[in-house]
Design a protein around this nucleic acid. Structure first.
Length: 444
RNA sequence: GCAGCAGUAGCUCAGUUGGUUAGAGCACUAGUUUGUGGAACUAGGGGUCGGUGGUUCGAAUCCACCCUGCUGUACCA
């Protein structure tokens, strides 16, 4: 009989999906707890919406296509297309439209949730990631826009970033709109290409952007990108306009005034920031890190922004007749985690369990008794799960970074004096049970 | 998507112009020590050489296609 070749299931993960380990999750939890604290202080309410939405509810319409636009993960269910949400703003708009009459106006909500994007992953950038999003719905007041920037800044500083390590950049859609009107670009494709080119100034610099506004640009690998084919004179006009150090549009002037009242100054006017192309209508903001981020080979990489947002006055309106101007901001949490973990001074302390070694299964009652005492004191502790050689148990304790082991063998039990071994110093001491908790506290 | 580079043990990598049974370090397991981890020594396990097909007497090595990773670029609502 011939042996069938066994084909094992793949251990690999789908492109852009990753396992996340404790080290990373603890940093993430730390950020989340800071976010929640700040959200409460600023009076936002907590909301959760489902991972899936009908594709058309989150802006994915399907004209003659057998699947929704690339960029989202979708599947067909009973002739309706469902998509995994790609952000938290679109579901919010849907939620507001659905519950418009019941919710307070303005509606201030924040949300933490996984989102999915069917795009090429990069460093600190995955196809599944956690996003934080805070929005003001139902107000035109620019106080809201300004406060979002102040608030995001407070969150970042709570997470340990200093003012010199990040900056909030602001601009307004109105600037580029006026600019395009001035130089008379009507072709919408051309407008789009130009807008996208402008968005890249931080990465490519002015020369790169100029090439993209003109005939096109060849990148480092030799790949060529077509440009917007603007006239040199128009490119000059744009360059001139974007050099301006202070804003002239009314919305930004107002926001700047409010920043002043808040005594907030870690921002920068930057007319070249664009953010998404679809729904923003007014002020836009972007949060950038100012320190170098490296990959695991130590190379400095293009990291981009860790979050941003802006005013979107028409999004809720798309669903029907309710008029709900809105503004919001989001952070990609995993990107922030990735960046924070690079700061060498950034370490989150975690308490690993004390390990009680097992000499004899029949003494389990005694092990459990001291385990209970220690746990009651709120200290992490566990009994080694089997009766292995002491060496193995010690190796285990060492491996999990346990601060200490408790040796409670025949003689110790007889005298009710367990031995506590400090795994960092290697010192051992014999201790009365009632003193055990106190001694452990000295070690951890 | 496009372009460049890469893929050999869990990890980092070596492997001569195609030539027996594919190697090293670290990690892992067992022992030196039946009550002692982080050091040392000894022994051991572990590989569809990214996959599939082709060329060849013979392929980790050459060819084709595919997959995956990295970097850049595009897209990012």
């Amino acid at each position: 009989m011939k042996k069938e070749k066994k084909i094992n299931p793949s251990k690999e993960l789908p492109l852009g999906f990753v396992d996340r380990q404790e080290k990373e999750l603890l940093v993430r939890d730390f950020i989340i707890s800071n976010i929640k604290e700040v959200m409460i202080k600023y009076g936002f309410q907590y909301l959760e919406t489902p991972s899936f939405e009908y594709s058309d509810s989150i802006g994915k319409f399907l004209p003659d296509k057998d699947r929704p636009d690339e960029g989202v993960f979708s599947f067909r269910d009973d002739n309706k297309w469902l998509s995994l949400r790609y952000d938290l703003t679109a579901p919010l708009a849907r939620y507001v439209a659905k519950n418009f009459l019941e919710i307070p106006k303005p509606f201030k909500r924040y949300q933490l949730g996984t989102v999915w994007r069917n795009e090429k992953p990069g460093p600190g950038r995955f196809r599944e990631f956690l996003q934080f999003d805070a929005d003001y719905v139902g107000t035109k007041s620019l106080q809201a826009d300004a406060e979002l920037c102040v608030m995001i800044s407070e969150i970042l500083e709570k997470c340990g970033l200093t003012k010199s390590e990040y900056i909030v950049k602001i601009s307004s859609r109105k600037i580029t709109e006026e600019l395009f009107k001035k130089i008379n670009i009507n072709d919408s494709q051309q407008k789009l290409t130009a807008l996208r080119a402008l968005d890249k100034i931080d990465r490519l610099g002015w020369n790169g952007v100029k090439e993209l506004l003109g005939s096109g640009r060849k990148d480092k690998s030799g790949d060529f990108t077509k440009g917007a084919n603007l006239k040199p004179k128009d490119i000059e006009t744009i360059e001139e306009a974007l050099k301006k150090k202070s804003p002239e549009t009314e919305d930004l002037l107002e926001i700047l005034k409010i920043f002043k009242d808040y005594n907030f100054n870690n921002f920068e006017f930057d007319p070249s920031i664009i953010r998404g192309l679809e729904y923003y209508t007014g002020a836009i903001f972007e949060v950038n890190l100012k320190f170098d981020v490296t990959n695991d080979k130590g190379q400095v990489i293009q990291f981009g922004s860790i979050g941003g947002g802006g005013r979107y006055d028409n999004l809720v309106n798309n669903f029907g007749n309710y008029d709900a101007p809105a503004t919001g901001i989001s952070i990609g949490l995993d990107r922030l985690v990735y960046a924070l973990m690079q700061k060498t001074e950034f370490k989150i302390k975690q308490s690993k369990p004390i390990v009680i070694c097992v000499f004899d299964k029949n003494s389990m009652k005694d092990y459990i008794a001291i385990q209970t005492i220690i746990r009651k004191a709120g200290i992490s502790v566990e009994i080694y799960p089997s009766e292995s050689k002491l060496k193995k148990q010690m190796e285990y304790a060492n491996k999990i970074n346990s601060p200490a082991v408790i040796l409670y063998g025949e003689n110790e039990i007889k005298s009710s004096k367990p031995t506590l071994r400090n795994l960092r110093s290697g010192k051992e001491q014999s201790i009365e049970i009632k003193e055990l908790v106190n001694e452990i506290k000295k070690i951890i």
